[in-house]
Design a protein around this nucleic acid. Structure first.
Lengths: 183, 183
DNA sequence: CAGATATGTCTATTAAAGTATACATATGTC
DNA sequence: GACATATGTATACTTTAATAGACATATCTG
């Protein structure tokens, strides 16, 4: 993703300017060429881990401080553009609103279920937590041996490392919001 | 540093095998070619951030879980091989025992001071903490307006973002251990 | 103003990251 | 045993990260 490169560009430039260092200074401190540093700061390059390592080590900072997004950001994700996947012959639709980002650690979905629609998920890898909120309609959610009937406004949290099922038991379209939190 | 590549190789292989995925599975989940994944796992490649990003995102893990060294490791740093820098005409010698590593966040030095030897350090960047232990001999350490006389066994902790000085006030060789902790 | 030093940009070259695909070796399954 | 599928390895090729060094602008000093 070139979102990465942008974060990196921003953070590197910020740190360099906070310390009032020139590109030459940083090149000398890190062993990375001036030209390359300039490109990274402009977000025009996709550096290798060893280059990142040299920069972090030379400046005595952590990786995360280089890779983190700017503290104040402002970012729109449009439901329209969200890629979606269908199940149950198109009667169960999953929209990826906020895709997983390693710096964030979770992802966000909207789910639409036609009346009677059904979905079964295999157990995810250890350490996944699901948080489901019913926006509209009703749903029955099962995980392992547990079952729960949810209506509009209800939220359920459960661990996703077990077989689980979603079902729309009502006669109307049911809409859910789902957060998947990893480890 | 190709220490990075080794950590990455180890962690990726570990995660892949824990989840019993094939290289093809991971290639499909991440969008990174099988050949490249194989090379990364063998530590023969130095991937770009976007490749790391694709792997982390596809596997739903954080960067640090990919970059961290194996939990159980065992690593020798020899004082003999340590690069050293001289000051005060060779009478003040600094040995870098453990160089800075972005995952660790601190570095470790040994300092040898001949009788009367002296060193002055400009203020480091904000957030540096120095921890000095006298192994042998005596030293006077000043930071800003503060001064302290240390003898064998004494340890002093102070923030390094101010002008500070080390001086051997004794008639014998003084040896210090110094830890620099960043942010 | 002339000369010197510092700072970022641009260009040409090299080295290597990344892909696609074919190959070899297992591991079943009938 | 023969066929099919799955899994990791090796090869050829394209793209691009990274370097070194030249160039263009500042900024300062005598």
């Amino acid at each position: 993703m070139e979102q990465m490169s942008r974060n990196l560009a921003f953070q590197l430039k910020k740190i360099r300017q906070q310390r009032s260092l020139s590109l030459d200074d940083v090149a000398k401190a890190t062993g990375v060429s001036k030209a390359q540093l300039a490109q990274i700061e402009k977000g025009e390059s996709n550096p290798t881990v060893s280059t990142i390592w040299k920069i972090a080590a030379g400046l005595r900072i952590s990786f995360s401080s280089l890779l983190q997004p700017p503290t104040a950001h402002f970012m729109k994700f449009s439901s329209k553009d969200a890629p979606h996947v269908d199940e149950d012959e198109g009667r169960y639709r999953v929209y990826s609103i906020i895709p997983y980002d390693p710096e964030r650690g979770w992802e966000f979905y909207k789910i639409e279920m036609e009346p009677g629609a059904f979905s079964r998920s295999e157990a995810h890898t250890e350490g996944v937590e699901e948080t489901v909120t019913v926006i509209q309609g009703q749903a029955v959610i099962s995980a392992g041996e547990m079952h729960e009937q949810l209506v509009e406004g209800d939220t359920l949290v459960f661990s996703g490392h077990q077989l689980h099922e979603y079902k729309n038991t009502s006669e109307e379209l049911t809409i859910l919001h789902l957060i998947l939190q990893y480890k």
